[in-house]
């Protein structure tokens, strides 16, 4: 399998001294659906944000398609980020703007500054935005304000926004953690569509093992900033589960 991302010995120490990642080495392969599990505070979000460089790694290297991106900056960094989509637990839409404008904001990396500030997106881009809203099944909401939508719908807008980037890689930071079980599946289904139909590699932080088993092709577990498990989702045994989540943990099912 072809490597998309190659991370070696990645360390992240926050300015306040928190040692969030303690030498993580990881390969992400083209086309896979990788889940990251681990307790709260184990460093899952930090790892994702180091990959698209929202956070600066303290040491170690990150290679993307064979190119070292650990210390790129300026337009090179923006170009790099453009090829990586990201969705968040709290959706992070711009609440006061329309659904359509939120989707269009996914195109900001590819449009001139002035044109974007005056809101002049080309017709073809608008068409693409509508098309993306179609893909996630909420085209009819295009003109509503983003905060008028339900949580699940907002996350679908966020997916439509990252689709604007035609991302090679999608980073999803607990995309369903603030949604109910039924809605969770509808959102996960769209991540699956991105993965299978758009050929987008997905890295997804998840809390529910049932979702991990159902959607991902591979799983890693973090504990206190280190990778403690790597394998197929079906192979997570009771024993592994306890070593990842602690002795007293009981698995909760989500259907």
């Amino acid at each position: 399998m072809e490597k998309l991302v190659h991370i070696s010995n990645l360390q992240k120490i926050y300015p306040n001294g928190t040692h969030a990642l303690k030498g993580v080495s990881l390969d992400i392969y083209k086309g896979e659906f990788l889940s990251i599990i681990g307790l709260s505070g184990s460093g899952k979000s930090t790892l994702l944000r180091c990959i698209n460089r929202l956070h600066e790694p303290t040491s170690g290297t990150i290679e993307f398609s064979g190119k070292d991106v650990t210390h790129i900056s300026g337009s090179e960094l923006r170009q790099y980020r453009k090829s990586i989509g990201m969705i968040f637990q709290h959706f992070n839409l711009i609440k006061r703007m329309s659904v359509m404008d939120n989707v269009l904001s996914g195109h900001l990396g590819s449009i001139g500054t002035f044109a974007s500030l005056v809101g002049k997106f080309p017709g073809s881009v608008k068409e693409k935005a509508l098309n993306n809203l179609d893909i996630v099944g909420i085209r009819e909401k295009a003109d509503l304000r983003a905060d008028a939508l339900s949580g699940g719908q907002q996350q679908r807008v966020a997916i439509a926004r990252t689709l604007m980037q035609n991302p090679e890689l999608l980073l999803a930071d607990e995309p369903v953690a603030s949604l109910d079980p039924a809605t969770s599946h509808s959102v996960m289904k769209y991540l699956e569509i991105m993965n299978k139909q758009h050929g987008c590699t997905v890295v997804c932080n998840l809390h529910f093992l049932s979702l991990v088993r159902q959607y991902s092709t591979r799983v890693i577990a973090l504990r206190a900033g280190e990778i403690v498990y790597e394998g197929k989702p079906q192979d997570i045994t009771e024993e592994w589960f306890k070593s990842i989540y602690g002795e007293d943990a009981v698995e909760v099912e989500i259907e």
Partner: peptide
């Protein structure tokens, strides 16, 4: 700060 992070992640410039 969430929306800032999201827009930054799309590859937008600081002014955007």
């Amino acid at each position: 700060a969430g929306p800032m992070e999201a827009i930054e992640a799309t590859g937008a410039r600081p002014i955007q």
